[in-house]
Design a protein around this nucleic acid. Structure first.
Lengths: 233, 233
DNA sequence: GAGTGGTCTAGACCACGAC
DNA sequence: TCGTGGTCTAGACCACTCC
């Protein structure tokens, strides 16, 4: 600190982070209470509060009423993954986006979809498979189920012009969602579609969304070999 | 809203979210300005500000000075991945954590590490491989480089008792980090260590950290087949 | 230039939770 | 019980950016 500057919440944030980085305050240490820090740094308590709240959200601090604020002993690193619409992800890299609808059929869901999404075995659903391209090369193969009971308007959508995901983003906001990532081997069919060979390692992203307790959609997104998802932490 | 309740920032948050979900406010729509909302909902402008700021951070709103606040047309979904220390991740699931140091040698880095981490080819580094177990079964195989130039204290750490990651968390806070995820095939060596077969699909997490511009560590974490990383969105 | 969000302040009361 | 963070308020000034 020394002297200088207008004490805004960001400068408090940075100053606290600096003290943690320089190990002036070590993991597990209790740091001064808000009122004291405000006095030290010459600003209002609310300003300190804002800074410390952000630091806690970022995982650097543990805060508890009465117990005070401590430096995290195990800073759970929160990677913020931005999951954009595929089209924007591809275009954002300066590549040409392509999209093709492979199949769209109305049918009852598989037992697996029922269990995961929590819909009835007799429910009316749309089963869609499509392929997303980057610079004309297969980029991601998508297999998706959409509940017509929850989102009846989907049957009128032209899913050969707009991907199901983009349509859903605009027309069916969700209140709850789940996403998971894993590695799988390409089956023969998948390999053919993604123009690779069976047994290639594929990055799999599985997504499900609900509106309150009503299942909206379950999707399996298979990325072509070489895909890397990354993020700053 | 109707009437009722103490208007705190969370209730404002939820109310705005409700209006988005019910499509009272659609993607692209401009919503009332802070002062108006505060009036409508019967609270101070600062309270509305807090709620809208959080909603913007969550990706539901786009806010710009003078231009006002709009509902996002492409709600970039932010999956918040909590990346805990492996030990806590395993213990948190009620499994028994095990750890074994396989190798620790002092040497110069490979060209790849140099390029990625931005360290000199002649720099003094520690090359460590280790295996993490869950309920005595191989869970994750770790190959890591640590810069002795940046973190000299590492040479005195007993890395057979504490994993390099945990040691680093406690002793070498970083200011910048990068993490990426992909799918790869197990090599013969990796398969042997993870007790699977060559060609099995493995989930790969690569992490690098820096303190300002000084490279601290680069790690390749290979998870045993079946691993799934997941998150709520 | 003027409207909107971004932030700061000083003070107040509240609620959790350590003791 | 009572200390600490969590939040609200009313008012103020500032900074960005659209027109």
């Amino acid at each position: 600190m020394s002297a200088s500057e207008q004490t805004n919440w960001q400068s408090v944030h940075d100053e606290v982070l600096r003290r943690i980085h320089t190990r002036e305050w070590k993991p597990g240490d209790q740091i001064p209470k808000e009122v004291e820090l405000a006095e030290q740094l010459g600003c209002a308590r609310a300003t300190v509060n804002r800074a410390l709240r952000e630091l806690a959200a970022e995982g650097f601090l543990d805060r508890r009423r009465k117990a005070g604020t401590r430096v995290s002993t195990h800073p759970v690193r929160r990677a913020k993954l931005d999951i954009p619409v595929i089209r924007l992800e591809i275009e954002g890299r300066g590549q040409k986006y392509g999209y093709g609808l492979l199949l769209s059929e109305r049918r009852t869901p598989t037992p697996e979809v029922c269990a995961n999404l929590g819909v009835s075995a007799k429910s009316d659903m749309l089963h869609i498979t499509s392929l997303h391209l980057a610079d004309r090369k297969p980029y991601m193969f998508e297999e998706r189920w959409v509940s017509i009971d929850t989102v009846p308007e989907i049957v009128d959508a032209d899913l050969s012009a707009i991907s199901a995901n983009e349509w859903l983003v605009l027309h069916a906001p969700y209140t709850k969602g789940d996403i998971s990532f894993s590695a799988v081997l390409a089956t023969e069919t998948e390999a053919k579609i993604l123009r690779t060979h069976a047994g290639a390692p594929l990055f799999l992203m599985e997504r499900m969304t609900w509106e309150h307790d009503a299942g909206i959609t379950a999707a399996r997104l298979l990325f072509a070999p070489g895909y890397r998802m990354h993020s700053a932490i």
